[in-house]
């Protein structure tokens, strides 16, 4: 490992240790839920970040992987009585398979940029319509998970159970991002993002690298879907495959900083705080949060294209805190 890889790994471990200790100091149920939801959104953002941030392939339909995971968990439990922890593995595989399928279809024909975005959006819609149609998936009514409290059933009585589960998922996501920063696959993926022709000239199999990224990204996103189902015990087609999830995933990654290890986490906590503050000030208005998201996205893309992390890094450079570029937190 290079010194920078070791430093980065130590930082991740320290962060996770701090997060693991946090529940001991939080007495309020509200703030624990706040943390759980922020971490959950961060896990979605990290999944999107693998393909969009590191790979530069901007998906607008990541809800399709989320939904595949959510429905895998719901259908396997309700129809087949399979333990939800097992469905987590199944969802991971199915999400990856969905990613591989969509990737094979789109990247084979060289779809890029807005064309890729539109096709992923369309795929998510197809999945929504399918889930809405079949009895198997509960059609338009959706599916309820039977209440069966207990850690063995992935239904925790104490909120801390959900907290540590989502923290583990986030930890896995951080490790994936760290690996992308410090591995050959990651170097190739980033090269593909920056310039496909140049990557090809240097021996990079562009198609396979993109296919690998969307498979990994899909698998990660699907685990977020399982978590959602276990936390809320209900799923229906618009919740699973609607644009809301897709936007949330890409937004936290873009706001935090695409292609960085901690970007999605920073984005998720920022967004959670913004949401919380506006709810306090104006009261509950779901439509307003979407408008606010849109505004935030415009501001970020215009003024901080590298996200909050990019903004902080350049501020630090300007203040002379960091002479060398090479930091990748």
């Amino acid at each position: 490992m290079t010194p920078s890889a070791v430093r980065s790994l130590l930082f991740i471990v320290a962060f996770l240790a701090a997060m693991a200790l946090l529940p001991a100091f939080i007495r309020s149920e509200f703030w624990l839920t706040f943390l759980i939801l922020a971490l959950y959104t961060a896990s979605l953002g990290q999944a999107w970040n693998v393909l969009g941030g590191f790979g530069g392939q901007y998906s607008f339909g990541h809800a399709m992987f989320f939904g595949v995971g959510a429905y895998a968990a719901a259908v396997l439990q309700v129809r087949f009585g399979i333990n939800p922890w097992v469905t987590l593995g199944a969802a991971f595989v199915l999400g990856g398979a969905t990613g591989a399928m969509v990737g094979a279809l789109t990247f084979r024909y060289g779809l890029k940029g807005s064309y890729f975005a539109l096709v992923t959006l369309a795929f998510a819609e197809v999945f929504r319509v399918l889930a809405n149609t079949f009895e198997f998936t509960g059609a338009g009514v959706g599916m309820m998970i039977k209440l069966a409290p207990g850690a063995a059933n992935f239904q925790f009585v104490a909120k801390t159970g959900f907290y540590f589960t989502i923290l583990s998922i986030v930890a896995a996501g951080l490790m994936v991002a760290w690996w992308l920063k410090h591995s050959r696959f990651g170097a190739w993926l980033t090269a593909v993002r920056e310039n496909e022709d140049a990557a090809r000239a240097l021996g990079v199999d562009v198609f396979r690298v993109k296919l690998g990224a969307i498979t990994l990204s899909g698998a990660m996103m699907a685990t977020g879907g399982v978590f959602y189902v276990q936390m809320f015990q209900y799923i229906d087609p618009p919740l699973a495959f609607g644009a809301g999830i897709s936007v949330e995933a890409l937004l936290v990654a873009i706001v935090g900083g695409m292609g960085s290890i901690f970007g999605p986490l920073i984005g998720a906590f920022t967004l959670a705080l913004v949401n919380h503050t506006t709810t306090e000030l104006i009261g509950r208005a779901p439509a307003l949060s979407m408008a606010l998201y849109g505004l935030l996205l415009i501001v970020m893309v215009t003024f901080l294209p590298n996200g909050l992390i990019g903004g902080l890094a350049s501020l630090a450079r300007r203040l002379g805190l960091r002479q060398r570029s090479g930091g990748d937190e």
């Binding site: 980033t190 920056e194 022709d197 021996g203 570029s325």
Partner: peptide
């Protein structure tokens, strides 16, 4: 020239 623009010189060469 087709550099990986956002990457450092070291990262660029390392891809090769």
């Amino acid at each position: 020239v087709q550099p990986f623009a956002g990457q450092t010189v070291l990262e660029n060469i390392a891809v090769g």
